[in-house]
Amino acid sequence: MTNYYLPQFQLGFLNVTALNTILARWGTKAPTSTWNTTGDPCSGWAIDDSKDLDNNGQFNPGIKCDCTYNSSQTCHIVRLKVDQNYLTGPVPAFIGNLTQLRVLSFGINALSGPIPRELGNLQNLTILAMSTNNFSGSIPEEFGNMTSLQQWYMDSSGFSGELPETLSKLTNMLIL
């Protein structure tokens, strides 16, 4: 993923590759009935405002896109949901490259290991749900860079240690 403006078909290919890699590491894959898994994932229901990712698990895993960039020529994935899939293993650090994400939810799984500091790159994130996992270690100080964060769900996640002082920069936080 990059922040460069690319023709929509190129950006779609990059998104598909990144998404398929993330999901493969977690032992799952995109549902072919709702995702375009070989072309542009920012098509169909991913850009349909009448479809909600929280619709009874129908879109889980699921994505939502915003196609208003570069005079509506460029789409970015802005919401990724992979809740309640019983995913295992670590969270890949390269999720931090999805810098246009606004909502990231991977709660209620069995993810483990330290949480990657690269997630601190997600400065457009407004909601982060990571509850009920098996993480270890402390919350990275880079999480203080997520200054757009308004809601952060992290209960029962296995974190230990003190909260980093950098979290004081999260002045938009409404729910922790």
Rank of each mutant, 00 (worst) to 15 (best):
residue 22 I to E: 00
residue 150 Q to C: 11
residue 31 P to N: 15
residue 62 G to W: 01
residue 163 L to W: 01
residue 29 K to N: 15
residue 106 F to Y: 06
residue 123 Q to G: 14
residue 123 Q to A: 13
residue 111 L to N: 01
residue 4 Y to I: 10
residue 170 L to T: 00
residue 128 L to Q: 05
residue 9 F to L: 09
residue 123 Q to D: 04
residue 80 L to N: 05
residue 43 S to K: 02
residue 156 S to L: 11
residue 164 P to I: 00
residue 45 W to D: 14
residue 102 R to D: 12
residue 21 T to N: 12
residue 12 G to T: 00
residue 125 L to W: 00
residue 47 I to K: 06
residue 35 W to D: 07
residue 28 T to V: 09
residue 21 T to Y: 09
residue 29 K to F: 15
residue 125 L to A: 11
residue 40 D to S: 09
residue 25 R to Y: 13
residue 46 A to Y: 02
residue 113 G to M: 03
residue 96 G to T: 02
residue 96 G to P: 08
residue 34 T to Q: 09
residue 161 G to V: 03
residue 89 G to L: 08
residue 8 Q to I: 04
residue 176 L to P: 10
residue 65 C to P: 04
residue 169 K to T: 00
residue 91 V to S: 08
residue 48 D to Y: 02
residue 160 S to W: 01
residue 1 M to C: 10
residue 98 L to K: 01
residue 48 D to R: 02
residue 7 P to M: 02
residue 141 E to K: 15
residue 119 L to F: 03
residue 95 I to L: 12
residue 115 I to L: 10
residue 170 L to D: 04
residue 69 Y to A: 14
residue 133 N to C: 01
residue 157 S to K: 03
residue 163 L to A: 09
residue 58 Q to K: 15
residue 87 L to C: 11
residue 1 M to A: 14
residue 159 F to Q: 03
residue 165 E to W: 14
residue 147 T to I: 08
residue 23 L to V: 00
residue 139 I to T: 03
residue 165 E to Q: 14
residue 129 A to N: 15
residue 112 S to H: 07
residue 23 L to H: 04
residue 108 I to R: 09
residue 85 N to E: 13
residue 125 L to C: 05
residue 118 E to G: 07
residue 132 T to A: 11
residue 171 T to S: 11
residue 13 F to Y: 10
residue 6 L to N: 05
residue 160 S to C: 12
residue 96 G to A: 10
residue 74 T to N: 13
residue 8 Q to G: 11
residue 79 R to K: 14
residue 132 T to D: 08
residue 33 S to E: 10
residue 39 G to E: 05
residue 128 L to Y: 02
residue 60 N to A: 12
residue 14 L to C: 04
residue 19 L to S: 08
residue 38 T to M: 07
residue 171 T to I: 06
residue 48 D to P: 02
residue 21 T to M: 08
residue 107 G to Y: 02
residue 128 L to A: 15
residue 101 L to H: 04
residue 168 S to Q: 06
residue 56 N to Q: 13
residue 76 H to Y: 15
residue 71 S to C: 13
residue 142 E to M: 08
residue 164 P to H: 05
residue 35 W to Y: 12
residue 5 Y to V: 10
residue 139 I to E: 04
residue 131 S to H: 11
residue 165 E to F: 14
residue 112 S to P: 07
residue 137 G to P: 03
residue 30 A to Y: 07
residue 156 S to C: 12
residue 67 C to Q: 09
residue 82 V to M: 02
residue 52 D to L: 06
residue 67 C to H: 12
residue 164 P to L: 06
residue 142 E to F: 05
residue 164 P to D: 00
residue 120 G to F: 05
residue 9 F to K: 15
residue 52 D to Q: 03
residue 124 N to E: 07
residue 171 T to F: 06
residue 132 T to M: 09
residue 65 C to A: 10
residue 116 P to M: 09
residue 106 F to G: 04
residue 70 N to K: 13
residue 88 T to H: 06
residue 103 V to M: 08
residue 105 S to P: 11
residue 81 K to N: 11
residue 68 T to G: 15
residue 90 P to W: 03
residue 51 K to I: 00
residue 130 M to Q: 08
residue 50 S to R: 10
residue 52 D to Y: 01
residue 123 Q to W: 06
residue 147 T to F: 02
residue 79 R to I: 12
residue 44 G to H: 08
residue 15 N to D: 15
